[in-house]
Design a protein around this nucleic acid. Structure first.
Lengths: 348, 348
DNA sequence: CTGTTAGCGCGTTCAC
DNA sequence: GTGAACGCGCTAACAG
């Protein structure tokens, strides 16, 4: 039925071992022999049997990328960068890696399931993106899985996620706290004193870190923390819309809304406008991430730029062993404050 | 080192075959035996070796999902739906499928590469999403790959893509033409006569079909086609922004802009506003797809709703054999015109 | 219902 | 530089 390595060997008049060597390019093979083999491969339209080769070699060329929400550009941009860095130079039968993204939908169970599936496939590497769920039991379960994965030779890279304790993984973590702090400082510097904050889902590292940064800035400026000015929601536009209406209900006098991310900020803008408020004249708005759409929103969004694509690319290279891990296996990726049209001095 | 099926068998005092049967659940096994085996699995923290099982069974549990742009919600929504329909009910060691998305970035070469990689893995199924590139050579190459895949027992499903000739695949194709036609008819019905059209990249089925629908509506209404009123671009927001400025330059008197999709439409809105034009008072705008953000854009976007999630879910079920393919292996998925705030009667 | 026996297709020692 | 032989871990017939 399907053509095997032995078929290629027969056609090229060599032994199966030689064909294997040519395909993997790990052993010296005479140029003429190699050519004959490659010709046979083409003529027979031969495709290596991945499972068989993974079984024999005890390692596969599959790389898994776990994301929370595939429909969110935050993850899309990172995943795309990781994948393009991993998918080899494109060539013939041997060599390529299969970089593959798995959508957990933010569910801890699915995260664990995917990790098991990847472990089952003897994945060459696994990249976990985005914040982690802050549940002790779940974190322990993930840490254990990652340890097993690492033991089996799978490279583990964290991209945009805080380092997991006791896990032999490389972590590229985002400075959410510092970025958020700087952002709120900017608004305070403009003169804002009543700032609403729309946080992400509770129990997530990203949510907590950004909120901490925000609060630190308020504290430093001596501004009292009003718990009523913090609303939790999801990381999407609709959530930002709803949360903003809620914030306005609680305090119609607020002059700025800081959102957990850019999507949320866009929802906030829509809600403010529908409430008859102008941006930034009446209310300033700020986001986080600096996703592609943020710069040409109307008005363009003040936010913190996270180098998602760069971090993803680096994670991809580390995952494939083409770049040395940072010292201590941890690197802090900093954000950059982008001041744009959506923030200004408060009214009155 | 790593624990194997034989270890589990020894611990549970049964033969390896029995363990295999328990894990796969395809054969009758006594309840007591099953329990003993499962306990041993847990105690040993055993994880099935995917490659070995794929090799022996001549089929794997991997399902590939090809998308053009992972950062675009159009694909994100479909991919998410497909994946959630494929990733089994979540359970123990056996049973699960690894649904995995591959980002081609719109590159024909990468599409082919991923297909080969999936073929190498002996994927159980492959789902191709979105429009196809209209290049004869590339289409032939893809068709051949799909044929080989199908020959090897891989189920091939097309979601949002026109059927490939001579390929034993199931196609869920979107009625881009009909939707676009209806949309433009709506604008014409409002009184618009000078409509700008921002098309997607050339040489793509989706682009062509939507443009055809638009033109058909114009022709039916007896409106002359002005080639200058059609601009091609990418399927993203920035492109819509640029294209709109170009359209305004070519004809400042246009009263409506029809965009290739919602992201492009949003870019168009931004450009119009920056040009001092109000929506819809001065210029109406329409999109396509009805992505989640479109309803709470300001103003909310008139568009054609494509049931992306439903189609994806169905594709996922067909790919896993849990739903019968439609008669003739082809189903046309229709869009629904959503008239919202961004379209109105033209000025003056 | 369960155990035994063969391979699945390839990578990798060894010899030559 | 090349071939022969073995085994990776599992599933799929067969028996019983």
């Amino acid at each position: 039925m399907t053509v095997t390595l032995a078929d290629v060997a027969a056609r090229a008049q060599v032994s199966p071992a030689t064909v294997s060597r040519v395909l993997n390019g790990n052993y010296p093979v005479a140029a003429s022999t190699r050519e004959r083999v490659l010709r046979a491969v083409d003529e027979l339209d031969y495709v290596l049997n991945g499972p068989a080769s993974a079984l024999a070699a005890a390692t596969s060329d599959l790389v898994g990328i776990l994301v929370d929400d595939i429909a969110d550009p935050f993850f899309g941009v990172m995943a795309g960068a990781i994948q393009s860095e991993i998918g080899g130079p494109g060539g013939r039968a041997g060599g390529e890696r299969l970089a593959v993204v798995c959508n957990t939908g933010g569910s801890p169970d699915r995260e664990l399931t995917y990790l098991t599936l990847l472990q089952r496939q003897r994945a060459a590497a696994v990249v976990l993106t985005g914040g982690a769920v802050e549940d002790a039991a779940h974190q322990a379960a993930v840490a254990q899985k990652l340890r097993r994965l690492a033991d089996a030779g799978t490279r583990v890279v964290l991209c945009g996620r805080p380092p997991a304790e006791d896990t032999p993984s490389v972590a590229l973590t985002f400075d959410n706290r510092g970025g958020a702090r700087e952002l709120t400082q900017h608004l305070i510097g403009l003169g804002h004193r009543r700032l609403g904050y729309i946080a992400g889902p509770e129990e997530r590292t990203t949510t907590r870190q950004r909120l901490e940064g925000h609060r630190a800035a308020l504290a430093t400026a001596g501004i009292a923390q009003d718990p009523g000015l913090v609303v939790h929601g999801r990381y999407d536009r609709r959530s930002g819309h709803e949360a903003t209406l809620e914030l306005l209900r609680r305090d119609p006098s607020l002059t700025a809304v800081v959102a957990a991310n850019d999507s949320v900020a866009l929802g906030a803008c829509a809600a403010l406008r529908q409430s008859g408020l102008r941006i930034p004249e009446d209310v300033s708005v700020a986001g986080f991430d600096d996703l592609p759409f943020s710069i040409d929103a109307v008005p363009s969004l003040t936010t913190v730029r996270l180098p998602l694509a760069e971090a993803g690319a680096r994670a991809g290279r580390i995952a494939t062993g083409r770049e040395e891990p940072p010292p201590g296996a941890i690197a802090m990726v900093r954000g950059e404050l982008m001041v744009r049209g959506s923030s200004a001095v408060p009214r009155g």
